[in-house]
């Protein structure tokens, strides 16, 4: 019998080795992969996110939980794909032009992957054209941009304008974040969403993709 509690604990505690071992054992026992996700993995990530928001978990704990989740997902995903199940959504992520601060972006990317999204990480200091080209080529559901400096924040607005001019703005949702970014700014520049931490970003991403 698959030990869902053990899988839940392994993810919550950021123990990737155990998470992978338990997942392998469960799959060998022909446990329904979707039930592993729904009954152990997602609840564990939700709990890690809530511990983070209560400041009981720090960024490292959250990242390790996301990595354990990714380890299990890597085993499960091919089975789901074979059964015709799609990832929750496809996301393009990067820090905006001129901004080299990528720690927050890496954390959000990791959490989104842990949340079942397919993540295409364009890295740091991403030019407007590169965002637009990636949207055209990869057809994502969502694009996420971050900035740490108020100096570089206007590049978010420029990127949204460029998406509009390229005729692809309506094909994709836009979420923004980063220390100086606010919900007001997000709505002022015509973004669809904003989140002020990595855990909230996953919730918001799910909401935007489902809308």
């Amino acid at each position: 019998m698959a030990d869902l509690k053990k899988l839940y604990d392994a993810i919550l505690n950021g123990d990737q080795k155990t998470a992978i071992a338990v997942t392998e054992a469960a799959l060998a026992e022909k446990v329904d992969p979707q039930s592993l996700i729904n009954e152990a993995m997602i609840p564990a990530m939700n709990e890690a996110g809530s511990k983070f928001e209560c400041e009981e978990y720090f960024v490292p704990e959250l990242l390790l939980a996301a990595r354990a989740m990714k380890g299990s997902l890597a085993l499960i995903r091919p089975l789901l794909a074979a059964a015709g199940a799609e990832p929750v959504g496809r996301v393009i992520i990067g820090t905006v032009k001129g901004d080299l601060h990528d720690i927050g972006k890496n954390l959000v990317a990791s959490m989104l992957e842990g949340g079942g999204f397919e993540v295409i990480d364009l890295g740091a200091d991403v030019a407007v054209d590169k965002f637009v080209a990636a949207v055209k080529e990869r057809n994502p559901h969502l694009i996420c941009m971050s900035a740490l400096l108020t100096v570089t924040m206007p590049a978010m607005k420029t990127t949204i304008q460029a998406l509009r001019e390229a005729g692809v703005r309506e094909n994709v949702k836009v979420m923004v974040g980063g220390a100086p970014v606010t919900a007001e700014y997000a709505s002022e520049i015509g973004a669809d969403g904003y989140a002020d931490n990595a855990s909230a970003a996953v919730r918001k991403a799910r909401e935007l993709v489902a809308a």
Partner: peptide
């Protein structure tokens, strides 16, 4: 705090 293997991953990320 997190052990060598985890630290390598964390350092790479953040």
């Amino acid at each position: 705090k997190y052990g060598e293997e985890n630290a390598q991953y964390l350092w790479d990320q953040i």
